[in-house]
Structures are given as structure tokens and as C-alpha cells.
């Protein structure tokens, strides 16, 4: 598989997403009379805004050839930290700062283990997946902790510009910033380089370790932000907050055309995929499919989003007459990491 082929395919993948999105939108419009009103669209966004925010940073993580399973647990942890500190009457802004610092610190710790100790990110973030939620349990046990100051819950629930809430505005700002960084900055290019071939990146003088630490630290920070916003929206925190969100988040990113093997993907694809998944869930709710089954459908979508490109590219390889493929392919990033 040449890189050109993959990119041409990707372009088609994005047009496929647009098509799929239009179908889902059309269904929703026919089923609900006031579907396209600003209020309804804002509500729709609001329901999954935290996942959408984390999906932005997960795009960077997966393009760099890694994975972060700990994001949802980090959301729960940051929310629990805010709730616990609020309960012990700490100044609320200070509590938020502490929670963000925890997110940044633990994210950087993940990055340190991946980049410097050289452990597979799946194993490291699996520990975080279990451990961070475990820490959240230590802080708030099995209670439901609320009692946030009024401005905090208003921030999460009330619109600032019409029905558009702070979270939605923040999401669009972050999406713009993430898109610019990924596609128009040196750092973004380094993310792709590290993801497509870490060994080549090292020999080309790319600071691979630093890039990875920055990505994981940001992942922790953004997850913490999302967790705090989620706490503000719900008004109460349990240790099971945001459980299973990593499934939706990873699905969104992969469905957006980002390759699980790293090095391939675009922010436009991920944004399209966010809109698609949001509208799909909305459509399923209209069609009377419950939340639990929706998760199953998302899981199916996750598998298909990888399976279909695989089958298509295999079929292409079979039907197109191409010169004999080189005998030795470049090692995949994962094998490179195990050596380092």
C-alpha cells in the first residue's frame, strides 16, 4: 500500500462520511418537525459535548500511533477532585485549577512511561483506565457529590449566546486550534512523522519522546477539562461518571478516517464523524432505541469503521494489477517501540 493510495482513499472516506451524515440528517428532519432550529441543534451538541472535546485530542494520540484508554477515567477523576475539594469548602476556581493540574500531571506521567520508559501505551493507559477511576472512588466513595456554586452549574447548563453554552463555544475554539496545530504547524507534522514511522522520526532528528509526552499531557489536561464541564452540566459527580466514554471517543476518531496504526487522519474527518455520531444517536433516540442499545450500535460502527477500509483495500489489491510488492515492509510503529 503506497501512501498516495491511502490518501486518495481517505478523501473518498470523507465524502462517504458526508453522504452518511446527509442521510442521517434527512431522516432526523423528516421525523422531527423542529429539528433544524438552533435550540434543538444546541441541545443535540450539548448532550455529548464532552466526548466531542476529548475526541479532538484523541485524534492527535491515535495519529501519533498510540492510544489513550484512560481518558474517561480521567474525566471521572477530575470531576471527583473538583467535587471533593468543593465539599471541603475550597475556593471553587482553585479546585478547578487543582483538578486541571492533576489531569496535566497524570497525563504527562502516562507520556513519560510511554516515551521514556518505553512501555506500550495500551498497557500504560490500561493501568490509568483502572487506577484513575479507582482514585475517583477513593475521593468520593460511592456518594453522589454535588452542591456546586451557582455560577458553575449555570456555566454548564445555561446558554451564553442564545442556546449556545460555554462548552459548545469552547469546543469550536478548541477544534479550530487543534485543526491549525495538526495541519499547519511544525508540531502537527511531527505528530504524523512519529505516527507513520517512529524509527525514521528518531533518525530524522524529530524529538519523538518530547512529542509523545506533550501529546499525552495534553490528553490528560483536555480530559480533565471535559470532566469538569461534565460535572458542571450534571451538577453532581459519582465515581461511575463518564464510564464507557472511551468507546464513543475512540469510535468517533476511527470513524473519522484516522488509522489505528498511526500516521493517517485529518481533523475535518474527525469533525464530520463527531456530527455524524451525534446525529446518529439523536436519530436512534427518535426511533425509540434505548441508550444501552445505542452503545452497541456505536461498538458495531467502531468495528466496521476499521473492517470496511481493510476489506476495500484488500479487494483493490486483488483486482488492480500492480507490480510485485516489496518483500520486506517497513516495520510498523509498534514493533519499533518494543525495540526502544
Amino acid at each position: 500500500m503506497g501512501r498516495i493510495d491511502a490518501r486518495r482513499y481517505l478523501r473518498r472516506w470523507e465524502s462517504l462520511l458526508v453522504l452518511f451524515l446527509l442521510v442521517v440528517l434527512a431522516y432526523n428532519i423528516t421525523q422531527v418537525s423542529n429539528f433544524l432550529t438552533a435550540q434543538n441543534q444546541a441541545n443535540l451538541f450539548q448532550l455529548s459535548i464532552e466526548k466531542a472535546i476529548v475526541a479532538l485530542i484523541m485524534t492527535f494520540v491515535i495519529i501519533s500511533g498510540e492510544i489513550d484508554l484512560s481518558v474517561a477515567s480521567m474525566m471521572a477523576l477530575s470531576a471527583a477532585v473538583v467535587a471533593r475539594l468543593n465539599e471541603s469548602r475550597m475556593e471553587h476556581v482553585l479546585a478547578i485549577v487543582v483538578a486541571l493540574a492533576v489531569g496535566l500531571g497524570l497525563g504527562a506521567l502516562n507520556g513519560f512511561f510511554v516515551a521514556n520508559v518505553g512501555i506500550n501505551s495500551l498497557a500504560v493507559t490500561l493501568a490509568g483506565y483502572i487506577g484513575y477511576r479507582g482514585l475517583a472512588q477513593v475521593f468520593i466513595e460511592d456518594n453522589s457529590v454535588g452542591g456546586f456554586p451557582g455560577w458553575f452549574t449555570r456555566l454548564g447548563q445555561k446558554g451564553i449566546i442564545g442556546p449556545i453554552t460555554f462548552s459548545i463555544i469552547l469546543f469550536f475554539i478548541m477544534a479550530a486550534v487543534a485543526g491549525v496545530i495538526l495541519h499547519y504547524s511544525g508540531f502537527g507534522r511531527r505528530v504524523y512523522t512519529v505516527g507513520s514511522n517512529a524509527r525514521v522520526a528518531i533518525f530524522s532528528g524529530v524529538p519523538v519522546a518530547r512529542t509523545r509526552i506533550i501529546i499525552f499531557a495534553t490528553s490528560g489536561l483536555v480530559s480533565a477539562i471535559a470532566g469538569i464541564l461534565y460535572a458542571a452540566r450534571l451538577g453532581a459527580v459519582r465515581s461511575s461518571t463518564a464510564q464507557g466514554f472511551e468507546l464513543d471517543i475512540i469510535t468517533i476518531v476511527l470513524l473519522g478516517g484516522v488509522s489505528i496504526f498511526g500516521g493517517v487522519g485529518s481533523m475535518v474527518g474527525v469533525l464530520l464523524s463527531i456530527f455524524l455520531v451525534l446525529n446518529l444517536r439523536n436519530g436512534m433516540t427518535i426511533a425509540g432505541i434505548t441508550g444501552n442499545t445505542q452503545t452497541g450500535v456505536i461498538g458495531l460502527l467502531l468495528i466496521l469503521s476499521v473492517l470496511i477500509p481493510n476489506l476495500v483495500s484488500r479487494a483493490q489489491g486483488r483486482f488492480r494489477r500492480t507490480p510485485v510488492e516489496p518483500q520486506f515492509q517497513a516495520p510498523r510503529p509498534e514493533t519499533v517501540q518494543s525495540a526502544g
Binding site: I67, L122, G244, E246, L247, I250, L254, I260, N292, T293, T295, G296, I298, G299, L300, L302, I303, V306, L307, N310, L311, R314
Partner: peptide
């Protein structure tokens, strides 16, 4: 199918549970 195991089983983790619920 060439789908990475982590993706497959994260998906079937949800799907098998949904089958059970249904």
C-alpha cells in the same frame, strides 16, 4: 478481517452486553 484486537473486543464488549440486555 485485520481489525486490531483492541478495537474488535472493545466493540464486542459493548455488543455482547447489549445482546444480553436485549
Amino acid at each position: 478481517g485485520g481489525v486490531p484486537a483492541i478495537i474488535t473486543t472493545l466493540g464486542t464488549l459493548a455488543i455482547y452486553r447489549v445482546v444480553l440486555v436485549e
